[in-house]
Design a protein around this nucleic acid. Structure first.
Lengths: 64, 64
DNA sequence: ACTAAATGTCAAATATAAATTACATTTAGT
DNA sequence: ACTAAATGTAATTTATATTTGACATTTAGT
């Protein structure tokens, strides 16, 4: 399932996938894949993304 | 750094590391390593642990 | 229409999470 | 003290997250 919360939070900061990738220290493809939803990042990367986008883990990565 | 929040939440449910491991579908060593703090689980595993312990991601895995 | 930047996607290589097996130590109960 | 369960930890293997490099498509500006 796509991560639209993350996509929206990135848009709110006006970051490109590449810019967010640079900030958190991964490649653009990794950011793209997480937003696309077909994989399972590590908690450290999730935390880095949360801090870059001023969101919490629950806001960006909780799922029911 | 150790994950004492997780250790406390597991204690509150009176689960052993083995019992929690069985519930979330990993080995006891993986649970032990996460509590010990010397690694970096995937978000799916974190979510499974949260649900097993009735806690949120922020409660168990946020760090400043 | 043309251009450049952003995004989607793929295959192959690398890094590391998680499994497996095994043994040592600690804790709680009798 | 004795025992069994729980926990700590280490080496090796397996599964998968992430990188790298590359190319196609979409989007926004002129």
């Amino acid at each position: 399932m796509k991560n639209l919360n993350m996509k929206a939070a990135r848009a709110a900061k006006d970051y490109s996938q590449q810019q967010l990738a640079d900030i958190v220290g991964v490649t653009r493809q990794t950011i793209n894949a997480i937003e696309k939803g077909d994989y399972n990042p590590t908690i450290k990367l999730c935390l880095a993304i949360c801090k870059a986008l001023d969101k919490t883990l629950d806001e960006l990565f909780w799922e029911d």
